[in-house]
Design a protein around this nucleic acid. Structure first.
Lengths: 144, 144
DNA sequence: CAAAAATAGTTAGACGGCTTAGTATTTAGA
DNA sequence: TCTAAATACTAAGCCGTCTAACTATTTTTG
């Protein structure tokens, strides 16, 4: 092993930072912050999800969801209503305002993806996906 | 293009989050937070760097460096001294305490890297590096 | 059935990261 | 030389993320 700056891990961090930056720029035009669009995508699949389920599918902790939703609710991007059968549960819904954004947001993601994999061949992209999934498994593994 | 959750960009975010988590766990044993170890590595290459140079090589903004250094200085991990010939410049130095950590930290990074690329062949790793570098260029490109 | 345990959310506060605005200080230019 | 511009850093405040601690509710269980 040589320099840390040549490690796959280091490259991943740099690349993801660049990716975030690009996505961020586009999202701001919609009044959203990175990650909030993923909440909308999930709600579009299943409106009225609970916050816990949202945290699970997004792979983040509950407080992260709470904060994000509070901000999104403040600007009318989502709505929260208590579950009628379980007073602990709060369900999250899209609003007309955010429903309108779903399509443009999907287009934004598609554009960012195009920019990301520009110049890579189809087989290269597929291989890359396979390798990234393998790494994701490796890193999620509790063993050393 | 299909689901966002199959995009390379989305995978990158997930993978990097997992990588951060693994690195974080190890770093906490040294009393460090993610990213701070990179500052130490850079200082080990060139002790007495200016904060601006540090920000440049780490690809972060000046305030990010300022904050991180303030925290590290508070726990004796680095030391800042004003440049004698330019009163605006503050130069950053390792301390005996942090100098001792360099080697163990390098080992930690090597371990995390091993875990990251576990199961990948040599050619696969090299290809992956090439693809990630290509993506980094793509995303750093100002053009659409 | 009542007490203990599990579950769902929130709050507080830490971190890295950013932008914007501000302070010194140094350099460049009229 | 004296002012204007550039540079180096800091402060404040926002974002996503996390952990730890807390409240309220529901479920389990003795």
């Amino acid at each position: 092993m040589q320099k840390v700056s040549e490690y796959v891990g280091y490259l991943l961090v740099q690349v993801t930072k660049a990716h975030r930056k690009v996505a961020e720029t586009g999202l701001h035009d919609f009044g959203l912050y990175v990650g909030q669009e993923l909440i909308l995508f999930r709600l579009e699949e299943q409106d009225g999800m609970t916050q816990s389920d949202l945290a699970d599918v997004l792979c983040v902790e509950a407080p992260t969801v709470t904060k994000g939703l509070q901000r999104m609710e403040a600007v009318g991007m989502i709505e929260r209503r208590q579950d009628p059968s379980d007073a602990r549960v709060s369900r999250v819904y899209l609003t007309p305002k955010s429903r309108q954004l779903i399509e443009p947001l999907r287009e934004l993601w598609a554009e960012v993806e195009q920019k990301t994999i520009k110049g890579l061949s189809e087989p290269e992209v597929m291989l890359l996906q396979r390798l990234l999934l393998q790494i994701l498994e490796n890193l999620s593994d509790d063993k050393v």
